[in-house]
C-alpha cells in the first residue's frame, strides 16, 4: 500500500513536470509578442527600443529553457506574473475566482450523486422494463444536449417565464441552483449509463450467486456487495468529471455571468492576456491531476485487493 502511494507520487511528479512544460509551450507558440503586447497596453506608440527594454525586464530575451525554469520557479512560489487586463497579480485574481467555481462544481457533484445512484440501481434491477428504456432515452438526450443551451432554456423557463430565480445573480445559495444543475445534467446522464452497466456486469459474478445461496436478500446484495464492487470505476470517472466540470465551467459561467475561473479564462483568451491564460491552464491542469490521484488513493483504500502484486490497478 505504501509502496503504491510512493509509486503514484513519483509518477505524479513526472506528469506535473510534463503539464507545466506543455502549458508553457502552449503559451509560447502564440504569434503575439508578449513584450510588444504589454508595451502597447502601457504606451501609445512604443519605440522598438522601449519594447526591447520591456523584453529584457520580463526576461523574454533569455533562452527558452531559462524562461521555462524562471516561470516554473515563480509558479512554485505562487508567482504567475501580472495580468495584462486587470493589472493584478494573476495568482491573486485566481484566488478570488476559484471559490466561486468550486461552489458550483461542488453543488453539481452533489446533484450528480443524488441523481445517479438511485436511478441507475433501479434501472439495473428492472433491466428491459419500460422505466429502463425511458431512462436510456433520457440519458441519450442528456449526453446530446449542449449545456450552454440547457442553461439558457433553464434561464428562460425559471427566471423569465416563471420568475423563481434572477437572471444575473451571485452570492446566495439560490443563485447556485441553476448553474450547478446545468453543469450536472450531462455529467449525470453519462454516469447513470456507466453505473448501470457496471452494476449489471457485477450481477453475474460468483460472489453474487454465493450471497444469494446464503439467503441474503436482494436489496442487501445490491447495497452491500454489488454497489461496493461497482464503486471503483465510478470513483475514477467521478474524479475525472470534477476536472472536466472545472474546465467546462468556462461555458456555463459565461451563460450565467458567474464570476469564476472559467469565465475569467474566456475573458483572458478574448483579451489575449497570456499570463492569465497560462495561470488558469496551470491551475486547472494541476487540479485535474490531483483529482485523478485522489481517485486512485480512495480506490486503493476501499478495495486494497484490487491492487496487483506490483501495487498497481
Amino acid at each position: 500500500m505504501l509502496g503504491y502511494i510512493r509509486n503514484r507520487l513519483f509518477s505524479l511528479i513526472i506528469v506535473l513536470i510534463g503539464v507545466t512544460m506543455l502549458s508553457f509551450i502552449f503559451s509560447n507558440i502564440s504569434s503575439v509578442d508578449p513584450a510588444e503586447a504589454l508595451a502597447r497596453r502601457s504606451m501609445l506608440s512604443p519605440t522598438p527600443k522601449q519594447i526591447e527594454e520591456i523584453r529584457k525586464e520580463m526576461g523574454l530575451n533569455l533562452p527558452i529553457y531559462q524562461q521555462y525554469l524562471n516561470w516554473l520557479w515563480g509558479a512554485l512560489r505562487g508567482e504567475l506574473g501580472i495580468s495584462l487586463l486587470t493589472r493584478n497579480p494573476v495568482a491573486a485574481d485566481l484566488a478570488e475566482k476559484l471559490p466561486a467555481t468550486f461552489l458550483i462544481v461542488g453543488l453539481a457533484s452533489l446533484w450528480i450523486i443524488i441523481i445517479t445512484v438511485p436511478l441507475s440501481i433501479l434501472s439495473a434491477l428492472k433491466k428491459g422494463s419500460f422505466f429502463d428504456h425511458t431512462l436510456r432515452m433520457i440519458t441519450i438526450f442528456g449526453i446530446s444536449i449542449p449545456n450552454f443551451w440547457l442553461g439558457f432554456i433553464l434561464l428562460v423557463a425559471f427566471a423569465i417565464m416563471l420568475p423563481f430565480f434572477k437572471v444575473v445573480d451571485y452570492g446566495n445559495f439560490k443563485s447556485l441552483i441553476l448553474p450547478s444543475f446545468t453543469i450536472a445534467i450531462p455529467m449525470a446522464a453519462s454516469s447513470i449509463r456507466l453505473l448501470r452497466a457496471t452494476i449489471l456486469a457485477n450481477m453475474n459474478k460468483d460472489f453474487v450467486i454465493y450471497a444469494k445461496a446464503r439467503g441474503i436478500s436482494n436489496s442487501r446484495i445490491i447495497w452491500q456487495h454489488i454497489l461496493k464492487n461497482s464503486l471503483p470505476p465510478m470513483i475514477t470517472v467521478f474524479c475525472q468529471y470534477l476536472g472536466y466540470m472545472i474546465a467546462g465551467s468556462a461555458i456555463v459561467e459565461t451563460v450565467f455571468s458567474w464570476p469564476g475561473i472559467g469565465s475569467h479564462l474566456v475573458n483572458a483568451i478574448i483579451g489575449r492576456d497570456l499570463p492569465t491564460i497560462n495561470g488558469c491552464v496551470l491551475v486547472i491542469a494541476v487540479l485535474f491531476v490531483f483529482f485523478n490521484l485522489l481517485a486512485d488513493l480512495v480506490n486503493s483504500m476501499i478495495n486494497p485487493k484490487m491492487l496487483n502484486e506490483k501495487g498497481e490497478f
Partner: peptide, 14 residues
C-alpha cells in the same frame, strides 16, 4: 492530464 476543453481553450488563446 489536461481536460480536452482546456487544451482547446489554451491553444485557441495562443
Amino acid at each position: 492530464s489536461f481536460p480536452p476543453l482546456l487544451v482547446v481553450l489554451s491553444l485557441v488563446g495562443a
